[in-house]
Deep mutational scan, measured.
Amino acid sequence: TGIVNVSSSLNVRSSASTSSKVIGSLSGNTKVTIVGEEGAFYKIEYKGSHGYVAKEYI
């Protein structure tokens, strides 16, 4: 489990790349469930599926 550490919002992406499609966003202080790691990204549970967020903001 981690907490989103941004002042505005954090993009949730379809894969572990900054060039991948943005599938949603999370507000600061949102609790997320981390299910894996891939490079500079965490794989998280997101809306019944999975998404990826940059580690530096969790």
Rank of each mutant, 00 (worst) to 15 (best):
K21W: 08
G39Q: 05
T33I: 15
N5D: 07
V35N: 04
V32S: 01
V22H: 05
S9H: 15
G48F: 06
S14Q: 14
L26S: 01
L10E: 03
V22T: 07
K55D: 01
Y57A: 11
S49P: 01
R13M: 15
E45F: 08
S19W: 06
G39S: 05
A40F: 10
S49M: 14
K43S: 03
S15P: 01
G28A: 14
S27E: 14
L26E: 01
T18W: 11
T18G: 13
S15W: 07
I58Y: 03
S25H: 15
E56Y: 09
S15H: 14
G36W: 04
A54R: 13
V35A: 05
I3P: 04
G39N: 08
V53N: 00
G39P: 02
K21R: 13
S15Y: 07
T18H: 15
L26N: 01
S17E: 08
G2R: 07
E38L: 08
S9T: 11
K21C: 10
S25P: 05
L26P: 00
A16K: 03
E37M: 09
Y46V: 03
A40V: 09
G24S: 03
A40H: 11
S27H: 13
L10T: 12
S25T: 15
Y42E: 01
Y57S: 11
I23T: 03
V32C: 05
N11S: 12
S20H: 05
G39W: 04
A16E: 02
A16L: 04
G24M: 05
V53Y: 00
V12I: 08
S19M: 13
Y42W: 10
S15Q: 13
G2P: 05
L26Y: 02
V32E: 00
S14R: 11
A40E: 15
K21F: 08
G2D: 04
K55A: 05
G48K: 06
V35P: 00
K47L: 14
I44F: 02
E37A: 08
S49G: 15
S8A: 11
G28V: 11
E38K: 07
Y52P: 00
S20Y: 06
S7G: 12
G51E: 01
G28C: 12
N29F: 14
N5H: 10
V12M: 03
R13F: 15
G51L: 01
Y42K: 02
V4E: 03
N5P: 06
T18Y: 14
Y52S: 00
Y46I: 04
I23M: 08
Y42H: 03
K47V: 06
K31G: 06
Y46W: 11
N5K: 11
T33L: 10
N11W: 09
E56D: 08
Y46A: 01
Y42I: 04
K47P: 02
G51S: 02
K31S: 12
V22I: 14
K55T: 04
N5A: 09
N11F: 10
E38I: 09
V4I: 09
V6L: 09
S7V: 12
S17M: 07
G39A: 07
G2L: 07
G36F: 04
A54G: 10
N5Y: 04
V6Y: 05
E56A: 11
V4A: 05
L10D: 02
L26Q: 02
T1A: 09
Y57H: 12
S7Q: 12
Y46M: 04
K21G: 09
I58H: 02
G2A: 08
E56T: 07
G51T: 01
E38V: 09
S9N: 12
G24P: 00
G28P: 15
A16M: 04
E45S: 07
S20M: 03
K55G: 02
G36E: 06
V32H: 02
G39E: 08
G24K: 03
S20L: 02
V6H: 12
S9D: 11
R13K: 08
G24C: 05
H50V: 15
G36S: 08
I44H: 00
Y46K: 00
I23D: 01
Y46P: 00
L26W: 02
R13I: 06
G24V: 03
I3N: 06
G39F: 05
K31R: 12
V4D: 03
T1V: 15
V35E: 04
V12F: 01
S9W: 10
S17T: 09
I44K: 00
S25A: 13
S27C: 12
A16I: 05
S49V: 14
N11A: 15
I58W: 04
I44G: 00
A40K: 10
N11P: 15
L26C: 04
L10R: 04
K43Q: 08
S27Q: 14
E56L: 10
S19L: 11
R13Y: 15
K31H: 10
I3A: 05
I23P: 00
I34R: 01
S7F: 06
K55N: 03
K43R: 10
V32I: 09
I3H: 09
A54P: 15
E56N: 08
T18M: 15
S19G: 12
G51N: 01
V32F: 05
V6K: 12
V6G: 11
